[in-house]
Amino acid sequence: MSQAVLQLEKVRKSFGSEVVLEDISFKVLEHKATVFIGASGSGKSTLLRCINLLDQIDDGQILLDGQDISAADVNPDEVRKKLGMVFQSFNLFPHMTVLENVILAPTKVQKVAKEKAIDEALELLNKFGLREKADQYPDRLSGGQQQRVAIIRSLSRHPRLLLLDEITSALDPVLVNEVLSTVRDLKSEGMTMVLATHEMGFAKQVADELCYLHQGRILEWGSPKKILENPKKVETKEFLRRLHQAGRL
């Protein structure tokens, strides 16, 4: 069995007295996509932020390529160089053009020569159909375009693992589709990913493993087919029933 890219062992996280994540253990193998579903407040975003070391865990361990990144002496900046993160609200830098957004990390963090970074960035933008937007400022782009730029920005450093945090929640259905097709492309290229999403149809398509998070705990874990069509736990059934009622399933 190949080594896991990411492995969590009994991770716990609380904010004050409120426990947000409890006893979270799972593995993500190379080229696999693991999708977390669950109601708002179930801890999906916090989980991704913990993996990225934006939040500090209270207990347990996080291993990236076998290295314990939750250890006290780990430099978060070094870890984050291996991770790409895309946020629900895009978080593009509004004072920079699309191109400047994409080359910021390569030139400042990895110290790639500017010309080379620009070449690579334009190639990526071209690949995802955003070449002609390179010199625009983010505010001039549609939400879907902004989110795709954010994905490209996170790819610019060739991350080992991509973390996608409800990246379509702020978009209308048409724009959702253009963003999701970008993610499908990445998946087919073998990118290892952890996603949190509300898009069940998409989860079904892209997930190798689906994981239902309920009040900070992993309740069910397995293939999308197994969980969506034959849930074991009553909470999962209730969640899926409500999604169905809302027309989201």
Binding site: N52, L54, D77, R80, G84, L104, A105, S154, R157
Partner: peptide, 13 residues
Amino acid sequence: PSQRAAARSLGLS
């Protein structure tokens, strides 16, 4: 703060 989070997640110090 999300601007800071985005920058830090890109590996910027």
